[in-house]
Every structure is written in structure tokens, then in C-alpha cells.
Design a protein around this nucleic acid. Structure first.
Lengths: 227, 227
DNA sequence: CAGTATTACGCGCCTCAGTGGCAGTTGGCA
DNA sequence: TGCCAACTGCCACTGAGGCGCGTAATACTG
């Protein structure tokens, strides 16, 4: 199951922690996929991963967290990218580029975990909710950091907050359509359904953003009449 | 505590149900405000309201639901207004008008409950999350209804979904700044902090929407230098 | 290579939200 | 008046999440 070697150069203690976390995520995703998220109790998961429940909660704040850990990694990468990016030109473009870059910097084992998480979220309302919330929180953090950096005041100028919401909307919309399109393609053809496709969907959503503001009822695209 | 007479003309059974729900919401808000959301157990709440816990869950899906019931009412009114509205001109304007109308159609006892809920949510992460989720769900329902009505396909044209996200963003942003401004005004001066102010904040957010798309770093409003 | 300070871990216990079965009650209606 | 259906209460149960404390491993110091 992909690489399970901890990043070299870390002190022993950190390597152990890395392994514990990695084991927890791995066994959790395996069990959830086999038996369903709700059907796997934390007690069982902990028994399987050979850690105490007490320890589990030292690594993850909730049962949902362990299933969606890949998303948390992405959110962190996004925040890092944005902090490192130069704030020049349209800020929406900066947000967009940071998000795309964060996706593309992930490893292939991340992609596996991410897809596994989305798979679970697609059939588990509780997980969908958790994902929604975590992205909203990530967006809030990002906007606050940006406000700090630019010396902006969110109470006086709401446009920056709006930008955050836009980026979040594009992400959600992109992921949504990406997931939907993965269902149709009879299995996972290579080059279809992976990260490139996800990135494409997100960019599509970003592209549609400016035009959406002025959308009227009669400029809505309707699907071709069913045959 | 405001009106507690059930809407006339209902059959006896419905009036009883109305009273049960009303009692639950009332005692819940009172207890939560007195002792904090987390400190009040459902057992205690049910004892105080003189219903069994089993019955509580026939009325509300969760402990959070009863605290934020006012928001659910507003969401429903919003959906109704939108369904009744003519889909002409810019759709964002239709969404905006429906939301504002929904707020303004509420009773004054609703306003009390709404404010009480926001007060609690402001200091209870779990409630904030619940509110966030419920609004996101409401927005999804609204967009789906609109897609249905206009015969649009969300997979082909993401702009309609984006519109939903815009409206949601304006709501969030409006409420956020409304709550923030209520804290400063040394108590609740009449005409300040009520629904008119809330509506004003939301409209402000809607107004800022189009300009936000093109926001650049050097056009961000900065607060006047602190003295 | 001692000894000591940190830090993580496991165990057992607890609270409480939320669920399900089943029996009792009450309103609607003929 | 009596039946049916909806509603409610009681009770036992599961599972998430938290907490104190004793133990064991790692890191640091001389």
C-alpha cells in the first residue's frame, strides 16, 4: 500500500509518531471501505491498529478526522503556498494558483488517501459534513492570514472575505463535478479521474466565477434534450 | 416571553405539537443562556420541559437543532419565497430579494430566538458548525430547486451553483459583521442591532460581490491608522 | 554511560448524545 | 361509543469522546 517509510532525518520519536499516524490512517481507510464508516467502531479500529483509544484521540480529534486526513494535509499545503506567494495582481488569481499548486505538490499516496476519503464521504453524510466544515475553517484561516498581511479590515471591506468564499466555492464545485464524473467512466481509466482531471474541474469553476455574477434565467445552459 | 399562543385554526393535535415544540425551544434557550450549551444535558432539558428524551428526538434531530430552530424557520421561508418568486432578470437579484423578504416576514418573537441562537453560537463552536452546515444544506436545496425549475444542468454549467455560493457568502458575511457590530454598541440601543441592521449588512455584502472578483492587493481598504 | 527530565502511551472509568422496542395514552372519526 | 392511528413515556443500550494516573520509552546532561 504505497510507501510507508517515514521521512528520513527525523529523530526516533518523531518517526514513531509518524508511523502511528500512518498506521491509523491506513487501517481506518481499509476498515471503513470494507465495512462502512458507521459500522466500524473506534474500539475495533484501535484494536486493529494496536493503539489505545486514548492515543487515538491524541492524534485525531474525531473519528471523521482520520478518514479525511488527506484533506487536512491539502489545506495545510494550501495555507503554506498562499503565505509564500507574492500578493500581486488580482487576489483571486493568487488564491487560485496557491490551491492548484498545493494539489500538485502532493504525493501519489496522498492521492490514494484523498480518493478513499471522498469515496467514503460520498456515502456518509457525517463525513460530507465534516469535510464541508473543515474547508470552511481552512478558508477562514486563509482569509484571516491574508487580512493580517495586507493590513485589511474585514469589518470595513468585505470584499476580501468574499474572495475567500469564491475560492471555497470553486473548490467545492470542482470536487463535486469531479466526483460525479468519476462515477460514469466505467471504472478508472488512466488519465481520467486523477488529479489532472480534478485540477481541470477546479479551474473550470474558477473560470465560471466572474460570469456567474450576472447570470440571468435565460442565459442558463440547458442540457440537450434527452433522446 | 413573547407570544405563546399557537396559530389559531389548527386541529387540537397540531396545537399540542406546536406547544411542545414551542416549550422545548423556549426552555432550551433559557437554560442554555443561563448555564451554557454544553453544561445543560438533554436529560435536564427534557425534565425541565416535561417531555421524555424520546419525544425530544421526535421534534428535533439533535441538541443543536433546538437552539438554532429560528435559523431553520428562516431557511424554510427563504426557500418558499424563492419558489414563489418570478425568475426574471439577474438571478443573484432574485436570490437576494428572496432572502431579504424571508427575513422581513418573520415575527418579532422569531427575532428574539434568532438573536438568542446567535448569541449561543458565538461562544459554542459546535453550534457555529451546526449553523454553517444547515445554511450550506439550505443553499444546496435552493440551488437544486432552481436547477429543476430552469431545467439547468449543474454538471454542464456551474454558474448557477456559484450563484448559490454567492448568496450564502453574502449571508454569512452579513451575519458575521452584524454580530460583530452588536458587541460594540454598549448594550442594545433600539434601532441598532435589530433586523434592519442585519438586512443592511447583508445588502452591503451583496453589493460588494461583483467588485470582489477583481480585487487586487492595492485596492484593499485599510483601516485608518490607530491613534 | 550513568541519571534525570520529557514526553508519549495504556488502562480503566466516566458522561452523555442518540437509538430502538414496546406498552400506554390521546385525538380523530364513524 | 368504540375503533384506529398517531403520539408519548419508560428503559435499556451503544458508541464517541474525555480524564486521571501510573508506566515506559526517548531525549538530554555531565
Amino acid at each position: 500500500m504505497t510507501t510507508d517509510t517515514p521521512p528520513a532525518g527525523l529523530p526516533l520519536r518523531e518517526r514513531k509518531k509518524w508511523r502511528t499516524r500512518h498506521t491509523l490512517v491506513g487501517t481506518a481507510l481499509r476498515l471503513f471501505r470494507q465495512h462502512g464508516f458507521a459500522e466500524v467502531t473506534l474500539d475495533r479500529l484501535c484494536a486493529e491498529a494496536e493503539v489505545s483509544k486514548r492515543t487515538f484521540f491524541r492524534y485525531f480529534a474525531s473519528k471523521e478526522d482520520v478518514a479525511l486526513h488527506a484533506e487536512a494535509e491539502l489545506q495545510e499545503a494550501f495555507a503554506r503556498r498562499l503565505a509564500a506567494a507574492a500578493a500581486e495582481g488580482p487576489l483571486l488569481g493568487v488564491l487560485r494558483a496557491s490551491l492548484i499548486a498545493a494539489i500538485e505538490e502532493q504525493s501519489s499516496s496522498w492521492e490514494e488517501r484523498f480518493i478513499a476519503g471522498r469515496y467514503l464521504a460520498a456515502r456518509t453524510p457525517g463525513l460530507r459534513d465534516h469535510s464541508t466544515l473543515s474547508w470552511y475553517a481552512a478558508q477562514s484561516r486563509v482569509v484571516e492570514a491574508l487580512e493580517e498581511r495586507l493590513g485589511a479590515d474585514g469589518r470595513e471591506d468585505v470584499r476580501l472575505r468574499m474572495l475567500g468564499e469564491f475560492a471555497l466555492a470553486a473548490w467545492r464545485c470542482g470536487v463535486r463535478n469531479w466526483v460525479a464524473s468519476r462515477g460514469h467512466g466505467h471504472g478508472n481509466r488512466p488519465g481520467h479521474g486523477g488529479r489532472p482531471e480534478l485540477v481541470r474541474r477546479i479551474e473550470e469553476a474558477f473560470d465560471a466565477l466572474p460570469a456567474a455574477v450576472a447570470l440571468t434565467a435565460d442565459t442558463v445552459h440547458r442540457p440537450p434534450p434527452a433522446l
